[in-house]
Amino acid sequence: MVARIYREEYGRCVATLTRVCGDLTLAEDMVQEAFTTALTAWSERLPPNPGAWIVVTARRRAIDRLRREAKREQKHAEALLVHPPPEHEEVGPVADDQLRLIFTCCHPAIAPEARVALTLRTLGGLTTPEVARAFLVPEPTIAQRIVRAKKKIATAGIPYRVPADHDLPDRLSSVLAVIYLIFTQGYAPSTGAELVRTDLCAEAIRLARLLVALMPDEEEAVGLLALLLLTESRQPARTDPGGDLVPLAEQDRTRWDASLIDEGQALVRWCLQRNRPGPYQVQAAIAAVHSDAATAGATDWHQILALYDQLLTLAPSPVVALNRAVALAEVRGPAEALSAVDGLDLDGYYLLHATRADLLSRLGRAREAGAAWHRASELTANEVERQFIADRIAALE
Rank of each mutant, 00 (worst) to 15 (best):
P108L: 06
A117M: 10
P108N: 09
A114Q: 09
A109H: 13
C105V: 11
F103K: 07
G125S: 07
T119M: 11
R100D: 00
G124K: 04
C106P: 04
F103Y: 14
L126C: 13
Q98H: 01
I102P: 11
I110D: 05
R115E: 05
H107G: 03
T104N: 02
I110E: 03
T122C: 15
R100H: 05
T127K: 05
I102G: 09
L101E: 07
C106L: 04
T128E: 02
L118Y: 08
E113G: 10
R100L: 03
A114N: 07
R100P: 00
E113N: 14
A109Q: 14
L123T: 14
F103G: 06
A114C: 07
A109L: 13
L99M: 00
Q98W: 00
C105Q: 03
P108S: 09
E113S: 14
R121Y: 12
T128R: 01
I102D: 12
L99A: 04
L99T: 02
R100Q: 03
C106D: 02
R100E: 00
A109M: 13
T104F: 06
T127A: 13
L126V: 12
E113D: 14
A117P: 08
L123P: 07
L123S: 04
A111T: 14
C106V: 05
H107Y: 03
R100F: 00
C105F: 14
L120R: 08
L118N: 01
L101V: 15
T122F: 13
Q98M: 03
T122P: 15
G125H: 10
C105R: 05
A111V: 12
G124Y: 03
A109N: 12
A111E: 12
T128A: 11
P112D: 09
A114F: 07
F103N: 09
L126K: 12
L118F: 10
C106N: 08
E113M: 15
R115S: 11
T104Y: 01
L118G: 07
V116A: 00
L99E: 00
